[in-house]
Design a protein around this nucleic acid. Structure first.
Lengths: 295, 295
DNA sequence: TAAAAATACTCCATAGGTATTTTAT
DNA sequence: ATAAAATACCTATGGAGTATTTTTA
């Protein structure tokens, strides 16, 4: 049995006339009769009572007609579903991101993507940059959004945006009086930093910056969370440096001040496997770059 | 797209190897590859990621595989269902019967039929003999069980059983003292009969019998229901004649006595349209005749 | 007797086979 | 280097066409 038999049978039932059915199927009547006979023989039951005057369904035919309709519909649905999954208009897509991306760019990417492809289920995983390599390799995420990600030969990395760093200061801090802050001004200040043990590339960058300006930061508190760091600054515990997008986090008692030229910057990048096959990936990258371009 | 494509695809997915799948399908590998390519082209999406080392499903392929399995299963089910309906192992069958058949033979037919073909839904319609012609013609019932049914050219009638008539008498009646009763003994007795207006062939027969024995029955009560007639006899209102199978109805205050030779008999027949196509009919007739043969 | 389905036959499109090449590990 | 899928080309089954017959209302 082939779908051809079902299509022919359904048409004959709808027309209740072999000649008209054949016309609708753009074929001649004899082969249509033959295919219906073949179908009846394979099933082992008469489906149609036919005389030269009328074509009527038997009980078996009625049952088979209903089934045939449902089957043909399901075939169409299955093809359409596969087509959409193939185009990436539908499906599942997992994104890894670092906490510092969560404040500004990620919500915008997420919003635009949902609007463009509402049928794609996005899964968001907060992962530190160094964890994203594994997650990509094992297929747990399709893309990673990280700052200064670890590069590997089987991974493609594209820079999304460069953000300058800003100083986060308690509102009552003397430096808050100025428009800009030099990193060297922060020498001796109580620093809130990120544990190097977390192997965060971002933490390493901050240590490097201080070192470049000739001092070792005086760390009074360490935290792995940008949000916590910001809270501690607001509480007057100390100062820190954050990507400018973190300014979106408003809190009483905190002020952000740009750094003096040359402003150190930190990049945000997307990373994905070179052999990533998900048809959703190009759509996602397009959205990421569009959102980044709109700053 | 044809079912062939789904069958091939499912096999390739199960084997995850074109060569082995082709072997299982008793064909060579190249045409199998071609058919899968054809399927992918028609759907417009890649279903399989294939290298020389492994064959893997894409998201679209995974979805289509699940659908294909369900579709193939449904095709099998549809064919099986139609087959059963065609054989009459399953379906719907409507039987018309006269009240007097309901006491003995019908329950036995019903029980045997249900045991033999539990998947057939039997509908039972109590209809007087003269109503059964219309019901058959209009297709409301597939067979009628009646006494002395009206015959027509488009209807086939088969005699199921011949039942002799017995006299139903109040237990206190003087004739109850004898082993047998002659119809002529009933002359002048109060008769409970059936209205001729109901055009019951059975009522006509009883009037005819009395007339043959040279008297007009003295009717004290008319009823269309055998059961009511029996109740009235039990209450001592009068006498009547019933088919012997009605003796199955036991009631205090009633006795049944066979009639003297030659015992008048009344036939029970099955009637069905000459062009009746229901495949259940032969099964039903077989049961009817078997039950009748077992008396 | 007329309309429609079934049969008889013919033809060609395409499913499937064979031989070979390409590709990825 | 090798196993496996893809490609190229050929063959032949069977789906579809044309002409005709059979059937039944």
């Amino acid at each position: 049995m082939e779908l051809r038999h079902l299509r022919y049978f359904v048409t004959v039932v709808e027309e209740r006339h072999f000649g008209r059915a054949a016309a609708r199927l753009f074929m001649s009547q004899p082969p249509l009769s033959q295919q219906i006979q073949q179908l009846e023989q394979e099933i082992g039951a008469q489906l149609l009572d036919r005389t030269t005057r009328k074509v009527a369904l038997t009980a078996a035919g009625e049952s088979f007609y209903q089934d045939a309709l449902a089957i043909l519909q399901r075939v169409d649905d299955a093809a359409e579903r596969a087509r959409r999954l193939g185009r990436g208009d539908m499906g599942f897509f997992a994104v890894g991101f670092v906490a510092s991306a969560a404040y500004d760019i990620l919500p915008r990417i997420f919003r635009e993507f949902r609007e463009m492809l509402p049928q794609v289920e996005l899964a968001l995983h907060e992962l530190q940059g160094h964890e994203q390599g594994d997650a990509l390799a094992s297929g747990r995420i399709h893309v990673g959004l990280a700052r200064l990600p670890t590069v590997s030969e089987s991974t493609i990395v594209e820079t999304v945006s460069e953000e300058t760093l800003v100083a986060a200061l308690p509102a009552s801090h003397p430096l808050a009086y100025f428009e800009e802050v030099a990193i060297s001004d922060l020498q001796g200040e109580p620093f809130i930093l990120f544990p190097e043990s977390s192997r965060s590339r971002y933490a390493q960058l901050l240590y490097q910056l201080c070192s470049d300006h000739g001092f070792e930061p005086r760390v009074v508190q360490k935290t792995g969370e940008v949000q916590t760091a910001v809270s501690l600054v607001a509480a007057g515990i100390g100062v820190t440096l954050v990507p400018e997008s973190v300014q979106a986090v408003h809190r009483a008692g905190i002020v952000y001040r740009p750094l003096k030229e040359p402003r150190p910057a930190v990049a945000l990048s997307v990373a994905y496997r070179a052999d990533e096959k998900s048809p959703i990936l190009p759509h996602f990258l397009k959205v990421v770059h569009r959102v980044a371009a709109n700053h």
